[in-house]
Amino acid sequence: MKKVYITRQIAEEALKLLRENANVTVHSGTLPPKKNEIIKNIRDAHGLVALLTDQIDAEIIDHGKQLTIIANVAVGYDNIDLEAATRKGIYVTNTPGVLDDATADLAFTILLAVARRIPEADSFVRSGQWKGWSPNLLLGSDLRDKTLGIIGLGRIGSEVAKRAKCFKMKIVYYQPQRDLEKETNIGVRYVSLEELLSISDFVSLHVPLTSETRSMISRRELNKMKKTAYLINTSRGQVVDEEALYEALTEGEIKGAALDVYDKEPISPDNPLLKLKNIVLTPHIGSATLETRTRMAVLAAENTVKALKNEIPSCIVNPQVLEHRKNKT
């Protein structure tokens, strides 16, 4: 029976499917396995089920002599060396679509939380500072008639736009290619990045991490935003220059921010962002619902089983591998 290594405990439904089709080994810890542990376990494995916190580089891939698939339980796949995998004829798959609603919910949740100062209010009550109602106590910001600027109107960005519509917000978006169909169906307006930054009351990031998007929000971009604006990031931490964000928040260049992702994860205890009151911080939980994480794991398991059976899996992110595998046969 073929072997599959899984880098973390995943939903039982997914484990059951994999165990019915392979000899399965699961990393028992809650933290990512060390590099040498991954190498040890994939030497004779045919499938690797990984998470976005696992850095699957060329060295690891070279040790997977029999690997057929690396199934990433995530939408993003910047943690995997696609070129190395393709060169070895290994499928790399992700789990798109199944986490759109959960991540959009989280993005809008932290947007509301920073706009209405929910963490501050919670701390205010718990610490015993609340002595009575006051007309100026913890005043936040309305959403109605405010402009939400979405950078990246993909699946998740589109779902965030739909939620914003329910709050009667105006919505603009930017991405390299216009999407006329979504402009009509959702009711959003396309603008340049510079215009989006200058007119938006809330800026929400929904882009993959690429060479073009790394540090795309830095000092220059933050300076273009309104002083009353908020920045929301649920995409990838490296999209935002954290040092520039800290300066913008402390110097009043923008009013607040909400982050679910960070340049380095977990966030360092001495990161200065932790000391600020005008920022909401969550621990990369965009897809963290029981239902969504189960669907993600099952999709990764289904893709793995297909590859083990010499079938073409869905959600391939390195389509060049198809030609490579064809040439090998």
Results as ranks from 00 to 15, higher is better:
residue 170 K to L: 12
residue 199 I to P: 08
residue 114 V to N: 12
residue 184 T to W: 03
residue 201 D to I: 06
residue 148 L to W: 03
residue 160 V to T: 07
residue 143 L to N: 02
residue 178 R to L: 11
residue 189 R to V: 15
residue 183 E to F: 03
residue 180 L to K: 03
residue 128 G to R: 05
residue 181 E to R: 08
residue 205 L to H: 03
residue 119 P to S: 09
residue 147 T to S: 00
residue 154 G to H: 06
residue 122 D to I: 14
residue 187 G to H: 06
residue 117 R to S: 05
residue 199 I to R: 08
residue 167 F to E: 05
residue 99 L to K: 04
residue 125 V to T: 09
residue 122 D to V: 12
residue 178 R to E: 14
residue 163 R to Q: 08
residue 117 R to F: 02
residue 188 V to E: 10
residue 129 Q to D: 12
residue 101 D to F: 02
residue 130 W to F: 15
residue 190 Y to Q: 03
residue 174 Y to P: 14
residue 120 E to K: 14
residue 120 E to F: 13
residue 104 A to F: 01
residue 111 L to I: 12
residue 182 K to C: 07
residue 122 D to R: 07
residue 157 G to K: 11
residue 171 I to P: 11
residue 206 H to L: 05
residue 133 W to T: 04
residue 130 W to R: 09
residue 178 R to G: 01
residue 117 R to P: 08
residue 95 T to D: 07
residue 117 R to W: 04
residue 133 W to G: 10
residue 199 I to A: 10
residue 102 A to N: 08
residue 169 M to G: 00
residue 93 T to A: 03
residue 126 R to T: 09
residue 186 I to Y: 13
residue 117 R to Y: 06
residue 160 V to A: 07
residue 199 I to V: 15
residue 103 T to E: 05
residue 180 L to T: 08
residue 138 L to T: 09
residue 127 S to G: 00
residue 134 S to L: 07
residue 99 L to E: 06
residue 162 K to P: 03
residue 104 A to H: 00
residue 119 P to R: 12
residue 201 D to R: 00
residue 135 P to C: 11
residue 112 L to C: 09
residue 118 I to D: 12
residue 203 V to I: 04
residue 113 A to R: 06
residue 168 K to P: 00
residue 113 A to Y: 11
residue 203 V to Q: 01
residue 141 S to G: 02
residue 135 P to D: 12
residue 120 E to W: 13
residue 103 T to K: 00
residue 116 R to E: 10
residue 173 Y to E: 06
residue 104 A to N: 05
residue 158 S to A: 15
residue 129 Q to N: 12
residue 171 I to K: 11
residue 113 A to V: 07
residue 195 E to C: 06
residue 151 I to T: 04
residue 200 S to M: 05
residue 201 D to A: 07
residue 132 G to R: 10
residue 134 S to G: 15
residue 178 R to I: 07
residue 111 L to G: 03
residue 201 D to S: 09
